[in-house]
Design a protein around this nucleic acid. Structure first.
Lengths: 150, 150
DNA sequence: CAGTATCCTTAGAGATACTG
DNA sequence: CAGTATCTCTAAGGATACTG
């Protein structure tokens, strides 16, 4: 499902992106902080080690803290909490506390988070299809530039 | 322009992504190194501080080292070199040396890099359209959870 | 011009132990 | 169960100076 203003035009999505990006870049250069660059903001959110993993995990089903931890065993409780808080703060995930005797907390993907699934899908698909090319390029590069120590 | 196999189906792109991701995740959990997770690999490449910026800059036009540095003034030469090397290694960018008296080197987006533009466009568009929602969510969150220290 | 080399400072993240 | 609180380590990245 492509965004409406892109559907409306006959331009390719990529061309659109380039032009849109030019705007961001001008903002960026003008702004020493680069604080208001929306693209950077998004990458900072999903570009970290666990956020995208978490979003995809919650996309399959809403889950409680411990279930998430079982689903992603190699994350520490510290990072699990922190990532969930960040996602909650940005409105991508909602947190629901059930006041049972041992407390239980369920995390759900908010509508805003769900709207991220399509763009992320495009990226995942690219990764899936181009991974072998990337790997081949790496082997070629490493072969050409003798990184062989020893 | 969506990938062909997604066009072919009537499933939503996001649903596809979820299922595809489930596969990755199983690989991930099974593999202690998580080395062969294509999604992580992509995020590691474009999720860093400068790669996406560089790709977009080279998408508008092929450029020489110094031109890139002028276009993105707040990057250090060290990181400019390193980011370009990484992108070159992965086959996203090609490097062309012209043996002039002071050497000149031009960087171009390789076909593989160009194929990344569409998925990235989807992400940029999302960021553009949802940024205000995210910002609002943050303000709300920060207001509710008194982060106000004094 | 297009880089290297070196030093140095932080932010990201793991490990562990404790708590309402 | 669902977290906090510390402590620690590493790697990303900035600053600066030098070079073919």
């Amino acid at each position: 499902m492509l965004p409406e203003e892109l559907k409306g035009t006959r331009m390719s999505t990529a061309q659109n992106a380039i032009e849109r990006f030019s705007r961001y870049q001008r903002q960026l250069v003008g702004d020493a902080q680069s604080a208001h660059c929306a693209v950077r903001d998004v990458l900072d959110r999903i570009g970290d080690k666990w956020s995208m993993l978490m979003i995809m995990e919650l996309a399959t089903r809403s889950q409680r803290f411990s279930a998430l931890h079982r689903a992603i065993p190699d994350i520490s409780k510290r990072m699990l909490t922190q990532t969930l808080r960040d996602l909650e703060r940005d409105g991508l995930v909602t947190r629901h506390v059930f006041p049972t005797k041992p407390p239980s907390v369920e995390y759900r993907l908010a509508p805003l988070g769900q709207s991220l699934l399509d763009p992320m899908a495009a990226l995942i698909d690219w990764a899936d299809r181009r991974y072998s090319d990337i790997h081949a390029a790496r082997v070629r590069f490493d072969g050409a530039h003798g990184d062989v120590p020893r």
